[in-house]
Design a protein around this nucleic acid. Structure first.
Lengths: 226, 226, 226, 226
DNA sequence: AATGAATGAGAGTTCATTCAT
DNA sequence: CATGAATGAACTCTCATTCAT
């Protein structure tokens, strides 16, 4: 399908005539504007024209690059999340160290690259509007949720295979890792409704605590059967 | 179906003409239909006519009972949540037992009466769409969030006053109690996006664990007594 | 057609049981309420229910007495204007005095019975909304404009026949008499749009002046051919 | 057709792509269609879509140029009346001649530019529907009534200052001038209700007569000089 | 006779999408 | 490639009229 030249392209050809550069940059600017607005107002409430205006182009141009609002959203998801799993998978494939360190590292980089960025708003958005846009929900599950779970599964399996983790039910363990991440994303993007003041939650600390809790649950203790 | 009928509706007059009977039931039927649809599709995505049709009446009839979609939503919120606080407050006013028991009981009945019912979908809805409907968000904060926080504040204050709880920062403690509730509501209504199969989360167990964590944080330990 | 028991009926049977009296009075109360509201807000902008409420009955009752809003309006017109011409015609048939006195008297009683009453609002209403409700306009012309012109025509014809008035073109003369009346009605009911303060127009004086102007135009002067 | 094109529209660029040409013409076409329909049917009874269709576009296009029906009406008022006062004021600022001539000239050009054009229907409309649309009434008073009265006031004041007019109450004098204009507009647009045939009123003659009456009232006569 | 709950056509307005330029 | 004028289906809300009670 039509996901246009991604951020990767920018690295390939660094020098260009200004006009040409802008042209090449169009999709990226549109995706950035779309990400901003989708996160800020949701999918349904974001008007196509607003995206175009924020990207500095006209309404028509948006539809030149993305055949519909839904495809635009999918492209945003791929740019921000789905398209980065090959990179992330490779990074973790090459990881050397204990599986506990690997899991901690995973949660940390997740926070840096997703949790604390606008991209986390996309997950919140899908939780809010997924039911109204089944095709988007399915796409998100396929391109983000599944690869994410698979990555975690490989980390956990590595730990078990190496005898570092207890032989727990992996699906259940995945959820233990994912739950605090999801909670953080929701809290970050929706807290204003439920608390009057500012959220007194320190995400890094919260995440570190949850990581240790999970790791404790995964630890091989006396009496466990290998 | 499990939408709790309003107090008034329970006082039924057994013998009545058909038309009259329907009239008495209308607001309740409309509120039930609205709750269903708002929770299912969100506020913006729910069309007024759908609510009417699901309640078995025509578009116009809905506006006979509620002057606008926003007022309908407010009525749903009052029926399901806001209007029940006087009852709940009275119940807790009369509570006898330790403050720890009181807090545990609070979280349990919250789950039974809100968390596990459709009403929990309203909180999720507000977190998702609150930014797009500021008046509704303000209403929700005034009629649900504030009374809820006040109820918790009284429980915590009682514990502190009786020397059962440490002299912690109450606002912070309220958040500790509310956070897992909020998380559960969001999880329950959005899990389909984040997990492939059924969520392996056991809400009661999760809630019980969180309650004990909070209570541990509130416990008076040696060396405290600021 | 269904013009219901008119005001006349009230004179006929003065003593009645209270309940019965109210019943009999219904149409009159509805007509009074309708006149008020039509004059105040116009025909299209007056809601049927408002009329019913102001008359102290329910919406359904209104349609029991008048099959539609248009028929209600016609009944109001008949009650206030159209139905009074037989009485007025008889009164002028019996008039003794000069035709000039007759014309002055005509304009004076018009002011007392129509111009200064709410009924004058109906003429303004027809001028404003007549184009949108052709059937009402036709009805109004037939039942009010035509009889009114006929009455004036007879007065003028009497004056000419008796040699009191010059042998002018009667249709044109009718207009000379009607114009200031229409002007007064429009001014009375619409001035607020065109002047900031209160209208400084004294209707009686204005009318008297206009009457003398018209009479001067009708006067038989030297050189006129009889 | 005789709707006066706005100043801007007159500056036409003879060579242009068809689409572009249409776009330039759109607002004017819509305003012309709106003026027609508002005058013909009134504000409330004119449907937005009708205006669009008469201008040869679709419903949506209307709202591309005017954000609401009320704003459309205001634009029509400005195009036809409110926006022309700067031009008219300048014209009268430059007037040389007696103040009596000035007043006669004022009433004459008013008839040519407003009274006999469709624009006069807007005044009739405001008198009919002003009470139902208070914001429009206020706008009309501010943008049309007030500037009109101010223009007249300056003429009258000039006459008094130059000793050409008696030192009368100016507000009262303004009304004397305005009243026949208002009457003419109402008569013109509503005569079909009040007369069977064609109105035998000659507006120019009527206006000239009224002008002389007013001027007589303003004339400085022996014994005045308060 | 009287009620008022119910109806549904119709109004103003929005916005994703198309396409002539 | 880029534009932005144009479209029209869809949405919320109103109100004259009906009819079961």
């Amino acid at each position: 399908m039509s996901t246009p030249r991604s951020f990767v392209d920018k690295i390939i050809c660094p020098v260009r005539a200004k006009r040409e550069r802008r042209k090449e940059a169009r999709p990226g600017e549109l995706l950035a504007a779309a990400l901003d607005l989708f996160v800020e107002k949701g999918f349904a409430a974001t008007r196509s024209e607003e995206v175009a205006v924020r990207a500095g182009v006209s309404k028509g141009t948006l539809f030149l690059y993305f055949p519909s609002k839904e495809e635009l959203f999918k492209a945003v998801v791929m740019e921000s999340l789905g398209g980065r799993f090959t990179e992330w998978n490779a990074e973790f494939e090459a990881f050397e160290g204990t599986s506990a360190e690997m899991l901690r590292y995973c949660m940390n980089v997740w926070w840096e690259r997703v949790g604390m960025t606008k991209a986390s708003g996309l997950t919140k958005l899908m939780m809010c509007e997924g039911a109204n846009f089944p095709e988007l929900a399915e796409f998100y599950r396929r391109e983000v949720v599944r690869p994410g779970h698979d990555l975690l599964r490989r980390i956990l399996q590595r730990g078990i295979d190496r005898g570092e983790f207890a032989n727990v039910d992996i699906d259940h363990a995945i959820y233990s890792v994912v739950a605090p991440m999801v909670f953080l994303m929701l809290w970050k993007h929706s807290a204003m409704v439920c608390v009057d003041g500012v959220s007194p939650l320190d995400p890094e600390k919260y995440l570190a605590t949850q990581a240790e809790t999970v790791l404790y649950g995964l630890s091989v203790r006396a009496g466990d059967k290998a």
